[in-house]
């Protein structure tokens, strides 16, 4: 019997089977991300979803510590989202980055202010942008480095948040270079002392657990977790 053209009852309404799942995932993402402008964010979400890009979704729900009225409204979770979206390539288009910034309902003025710290043309290194964002999150350099470590780490959440030493030193140099108050010699001395301690730690680990050697080599350098903790 062919379906009639006209509908007579509610049972004839057809719901696409994939709709509930999409709807649910979207709802969850919205709940988790808590965007200020849901429409804007939804546009970004669905465009990313249709393009197959990483979704602008926070991994964890964040308590609203930051408000756009008092500060940038930027949070660590948002920075992580941005990093996740941009990490697949080394250099990011500024327009693309701005679009993503907007999709996260962050004010464009803050983006411009952020870029004024390190003015560049239409491309910026992702790690640098991340470092700038981290510096914007907290006041001191140490806090910024801490945020960076927590964003960049491959360790599970709550873990020691270790990152390779090279990345750390690169970002540290970059950030301290931006700040004219810090002399370069201090930076280098700090980094060298850090390196020594890292090396000592590594050798210590190797002495304790010789079977860990290959693993540590694969890690591209020792983790910075303990050092990070020592800093603050």
């Amino acid at each position: 019997m062919p379906l009639p053209d006209t509908m007579f009852c509610a049972q004839q309404i057809h719901i696409p089977p994939e709709l509930p799942d999409i709807l649910k995932q979207f709802t969850k993402a919205a709940i988790r991300t808590q965007p200020a402008d849901v429409l804007q964010w939804s546009a970004g979400y669905f465009s990313a979803l249709s393009r197959g890009d990483p979704l602008p979704v926070k991994d964890r729900i964040e308590m609203p510590t930051a408000t756009q009225k008092t500060d940038t409204g930027l949070t660590q979770g948002l920075l992580k989202v941005l990093h996740k979206q941009c990490s697949h390539k080394e250099h990011v288009e500024l327009a693309d980055l701005e679009q993503k910034w907007k999709n996260l309902c962050l004010p464009v003025e803050k983006f411009r202010a952020l870029l004024q710290l390190d003015p560049c043309e239409n491309k910026i290194e992702g790690i640098k942008f991340l470092a700038l964002g981290c510096s914007m999150l907290g006041g001191s350099l140490n806090t910024a480095m801490k945020h960076l470590c927590e964003i960049l780490t491959a360790d599970p959440e709550g873990g020691p948040a270790r990152i390779p030493f090279e990345t750390f030193s690169y970002v540290y140099r970059y950030l301290s270079g931006l700040d004219s108050d810090i002399p370069a010699s201090d930076t280098e001395s700090y980094l060298s002392s850090l390196k020594d301690s890292v090396r000592a730690w590594r050798t210590h680990r190797l002495e304790e657990h010789p079977w860990l050697g290959s693993k540590l080599d694969h890690q591209l350098g020792p983790a910075l977790g303990p050092l990070d903790r020592e800093k603050h």
């Binding site: 964890r60 959440e157 709550g158 873990g159 020691p160």
Partner: peptide
């Protein structure tokens, strides 16, 4: 969230 919190706190504790 609860599970993640648990896991995070567990890892922090482990650390």
């Amino acid at each position: 969230e609860e599970l993640a919190n648990l896991r995070a706190s567990q890892r922090a504790h482990e650390e």
